[in-house]
Amino acid sequence: MAIKSSKETAVSVGFLSPFMLLFGIFLIFPIFYSFYLSFFGSPTDYSLSNLEFVGLDNYVRIFTDFQFWWSLMVTAVYGLLTIPLGIAASLALALLLDNKLFGKSFFRSAFFLPNVLDMLVVGVIWTLIYAPKFGALAQLTTFIMSEDNFFNTTGLLGSPYTALPAVVFAMVLKGAGFGMVLFLAALQNIPQAVYEAADIDGASEWQKFWNITVPLLKPIIVFMGITGVIGALNAFTEIYAMTSGGPQVVIGGETVGSTSVAGYYLYKQFESGNYGYAAAISYMLLIITLGITWLQQRLAARKSAQEVGK
């Protein structure tokens, strides 16, 4: 028996080893190496062995880097817009398609389709839709209104006040299909008897939604909240494809990108060859992500405990 078990283990390890090798080289090693790198300055040549040790300087620099804190604030706004709107859009679609609607299979596939597309492709498509002068939105608004309308002259991505909401709108629509599938699965697991009992008690549609549907969907909402926070802190491709961090806005005399999220700022540092500083920023973002996720879970757990107590 023991011989068979060890043989099975050896076979399993054999099959797993190619993946583990790649996993180790391309994921585990970079995680530790970037932590090591965060204590070094920018290289003066192309040899990573000649890096100057700077201790905690990179981490200290983060605290005085206005551009970083600005990018973190943009990330927070991005997250605060995308997460609730994403959850609301997903839930709305799920509720809509949970009914006996004509052609619901088609709509389910149609709403899920953008989620399958690459983020870069979706970003480029929306850039073309938003483009002033010749974009679809500009053409439509010019047809309805006059030539001299905002969508035609400046475009949603051309103004620092509308660029981030425009990116959010595109990303909410892209991600809504995935959330919709999760909510649909959860909705179909809610026993019909609960609603029937509420009907007997004389509950309105809104009361049933708020007091039955939403509490029973809470695990999905929490899951989407946590993955949404991680997604916002990692946001990069959509910004790269749609705005490159712009348009610029002047805050307290400092020119900053109105859509320069932390992930994009990190990329720009890496692109400029500031490997040590970029690594320090990525660890700072990791700490923030872990902190927020921990807080979210604690809050969710506390609320559950309170509800059980009731």
Partner: peptide
Amino acid sequence: EAGAWRPGAISPEQGFVNGK
């Protein structure tokens, strides 16, 4: 100037080809 420098705007090259 057409505002082609704005993020997301139609590039100078594209607008030139389109006769704008």
